[in-house]
């Protein structure tokens, strides 16, 4: 008679290795495929010229404005989200006890983390279409003749992105703050520092690696998101502010107008979008994935540096 345990253990091992190699191979081949298809596209021209709205793939230009758009949007989003998330994390980790209110705060943030980006995108669209918030984008005349805000611009998308990554960054920052040993705080308080001083002078510097990791991971999520860009940055592939858009005097106009990022460019250029120039899409996808890999390396280094420091102490 076959030994049940041996059979189970053997089958278990085989299945675990089989399924896991399947998933790893499937995923890795995606990256390889991307490199192979995208590499042929990458050249200085492709990176440095703006895209051309044409159906002829050879004439369609490069991806300079989508790259610029990605940086611009990421910067806007993270500049808003980082202080906001850090403040929330400070409150939850340092001030919040177990009172009912804090529990409700936590629950609300937890629920926000589960809201799909597409829902956050239409929320952004709804709130920034209010005529009162028109200064963040531009005013247009609606179908019904009533003037409303266009609700699509770098600023709008940046704020919406900030909301999207908020719970995620809060969580990482909170964990970083909680990892600071309590005797640091006690030492500070015992020397007559106020609570706020002890946070600013002792806790935050000690937690800076974790906070930085949270910010970088948050940036990664902004860079990778498409739904919010598609709905709240407008579908245009070029910057629509006053040209040339990079002149410092035009910056505000650029921020208040629409544009594109790498993700929305890929969507646009793929057969699913209107562009239908898959080669360009693969080129842009390769640039995007390289950005993501660089950010990943950053967080990995940060983590290792952090780990070494703890060991060194």
């Amino acid at each position: 008679m076959l030994d049940y345990q041996k059979l189970r253990d053997g089958t278990g091992h085989v299945l675990a290795w089989l399924f896991s190699s399947l998933s790893i191979v499937a995923c890795l081949s995606i990256i390889f495929y991307l490199f192979i298809r995208g590499f042929a596209q990458i050249n200085p021209d492709f990176i440095l010229t703006p895209p051309n709205p044409t159906l002829n793939q050879d004439m369609s230009g490069g991806i300079s404005t989508p790259i610029a758009g990605t940086f611009l949007l990421t910067l806007t989003g993270i500049l808003l989200a980082a202080p906001w998330a850090l403040a929330t994390a400070i409150y939850l980790a340092e001030y919040g006890g177990s009172q009912a209110m804090v529990q409700i705060f936590r629950l609300a943030i937890d629920v926000l983390a589960g809201v799909p980006t597409i829902v956050i995108a239409i929320f952004g669209l709804a709130i920034f279409s209010l005529p009162q918030l028109g200064f963040l984008s531009s005013m247009v005349e609606g179908v019904d003749g009533v003037e409303r805000s266009f609700g699509r611009s770098f600023l709008v998308a940046g704020i919406t992105m900030a909301i999207m990554i908020l719970p995620f960054v809060i969580k990482i920052c909170e964990e970083a703050l909680k990892a600071v040993p309590n005797y640091y705080r006690e030492a500070a308080l015992s020397m007559g520092a106020s609570k706020w001083q002890s946070i600013v002078t002792v806790v935050l510097p000690s937690a800076r690696q974790g906070i930085l990791t949270g910010i970088i991971l948050g940036m990664g999520r902004i860079i990778g998101d498409t739904a919010i860009v598609w709905l709240t940055l407008g579908g245009t592939i070029r910057m629509t502010g006053i040209q040339p858009w990079w002149y410092p005097v035009h910056w505000w106009s650029t921020l208040c107008n629409t544009g594109s990022t790498l993700t929305s460019y890929i969507y646009f250029a793929s057969p699913a979008g209107e562009g239908n120039m898959p080669d360009k899409a693969f080129g842009a996808a390769l640039v995007l994935i390289i950005l993501i890999i660089v950010l990943n390396i950053f967080t990995d280094l940060l983590e290792r540096f952090g780990a070494n420091k703890i060991k060194g102490n």
Binding site: G220, I223, G224, T226, Y267, I289
Partner: peptide, 9 residues
């Protein structure tokens, strides 16, 4: 961390 649009592509 691979963006969904790349999976879609």
């Amino acid at each position: 961390s691979i963006p969904s649009v790349i999976y879609g592509l």
